[in-house]
Design a protein around this nucleic acid. Structure first.
Lengths: 309, 309
DNA sequence: ATGGCGACATAAGCTGGGTTTATGAGCAAC
DNA sequence: GTTGCTCATAAACCCAGCTTATGTCGCCAT
């Protein structure tokens, strides 16, 4: 009777999984949006119509939002449903990238195309490329091995990989290469940090004299920064993974220097903000590499051509 | 006996949900990565240690990849596990944006902060802002209403919203505004299209004389394009949602003109490629708006300050 | 009208994945 | 040794989602 049962706002804490529908439900929603019919969507996903009906209904109950307008001649999204569907599409896209990446990780042998890539490229770029490759060559099995430049070179020279990707400053001996993209290192801080409000660009000297959250010495990222500053980078902390550096920066520990590729997500969600810098060469080439003489052919050539803008 | 049971490559078709672990498992994996312990992760998610153990194990079975190295004094990610975890992190981030968006959609009344926003902003920018807002004001309940500029203005003037966001060319009467960001329209095509290989910038005349995939007349996006070209845009097809335009462009139907915000995902996955254009003013302001005189205060002021770069 | 068809809803029964409790086993430090 | 942390295994339980079978509603053709 009172507003006591009017849910005083469902727990905003606790596992996400309890408040976000599972992937199956989201895929179903996308199919309904595209086909305009519950039954049709059910057919496409290989389940029965009542299953689809019930699943959409329970998703609406879970979210507390009406998503589709049912009518005896089809179903259309509500306004809120359209918005929710667009957000869902992004979860599904991330899941597709995950899927294609994991598949490449698993199928180690008897693959038609064996790729070796540096961590940053494997993490941020390869899933997108593999999705594109699958779109035009659906039956190419791809295997992926991630490691640093040295490991990539070893695998190529031992004929354990057909195509490699590296991000270092130089190309390992015995390999030919082509620049496929450029990566920029950027300085970022949590939104609360003093530098987040700067409008004037940071000068090289200022950057060199401030303790920064950095990858460990020897990492590709650190090499580029040290080279750009003349070996002067002063670490506040040294961490051994990009993820750890990001986490430290987000928590406000200080300014960090990271690949632009690694922080796209955080920037657009404003968990981190970029600090303008000038007079420091923080770009590096991303290169495809292969054994000297063995120009990529077949699937390797297809993948290579996909990576060039 | 033969290699018949050696899985001739697990079905690369069919529902994603069968090949990608559910959100609960991914969250668990992230917790394990962060805490270095199955039991610790279990505690954090409010489940028991055996449940966590079994869930991680079944995820490894599902993916066909060993993710964590168990030892009697903790668990660490394998190399492959680290890669998988990073891909998982992106799914979880998308799910967080979904969650915060849906919550705002649901809590229509008795919210401390009522926001009205145009579709594009609600879709692509607001979830990020709301996440940031929740980080600094965890107990602010937010409600969201999406609609075009006119609707946003109506709600603000009727005191049904505290803060609005619009993307049109002009500010509705009776409202004050502040520019919070700029949006650029860009020309995109599928990677196979002839324009995808262009290096020379496209001139205005060329753009105006080519049939394009466009939003319907009257939409914010279309208004900007028509104004920039002097009302000359020639439609190949007119579609009523950003999503439909993207889908048509990806399928190779022709070049499309879309907000940069809408195609970030597609660009980075190379489902679409940008076509350079020059001599056409395709930027528009994104503005926060409020009733003249009623400068935003409290939560509205907090949100507003988050949106400025 | 009337029967047919397509789309969604409801009901009942089954199944499996994930959970819990309870217990065992390995390694480290005191 | 004993204590305390880790993870693994086993058995019992529970519920979400599936299927099959059937009902209802609106449209359309005859």
């Amino acid at each position: 009777m009172s507003n006591a049962d009017e849910q005083a706002g469902p727990a905003v804490t606790g596992p996400l999984a309890h408040r976000v529908p599972d992937l199956g439900a989201l895929e179903l929603l996308l199919a309904v949006a595209r086909l305009g019919s519950l039954g049709g969507a059910a057919r496409e996903l290989g389940i029965t119509q009542p299953a689809a009906s019930s699943r959409i209904r329970s998703m609406e109950r879970q979210l507390g939002v009406a998503l589709v307008d049912r009518s005896p001649r089809g179903s259309r999204l509500t306004d809120a449903g359209a918005l929710v569907t667009d957000w869902a599409r992004r979860i599904v896209a991330a899941a597709e990238a995950f899927d294609v990446g994991v598949q490449a990780l698993r199928v180690r042998r008897d693959s038609r195309l064996r790729v070796a890539a540096s961590m940053t490229i494997a993490e941020y770029l390869l899933p997108g490329w593999l999705l594109a490759l699958r779109a035009q060559r659906p039956d190419t099995a791809v295997s992926l091995h991630a490691g640093n430049s040295t490991v990539v070179a070893e695998r190529l020279l031992a004929d354990e990989a057909d195509l490699g990707f590296v991000e270092g400053l130089s190309v390992p001996a015995g390999l030919d290469s082509a620049v496929i993209a450029h990566d920029r290192l950027i300085v970022v801080t949590a939104p609360g940090h003093a530098w987040a409000r700067r409008r004037r660009s940071l000068a090289a000297g200022e950057l060199a004299s401030t303790p920064l959250i950095l990858r460990e010495k020897g990492s590709g990222t650190r090499q580029v920064l040290d080279a750009a500053l003349g070996g002067l980078a002063r670490p506040l902390i040294e961490l051994s993974s990009t993820t750890a550096v990001k986490a430290a920066a987000v928590s406000g520990a200080g300014p960090a220097v990271l690949s632009e590729l690694a922080v796209g997500e955080e920037l657009s969600m404003r968990r981190l903000v970029p600090v303008p810098v000038e007079g420091v060469a923080l770009t590096r080439d991303l290169r495809a590499v292969w054994p000297t003489g063995h120009r990529p052919t077949g699937p390797a050539r297809d993948l290579l051509s996909l990576t060039r803008g």
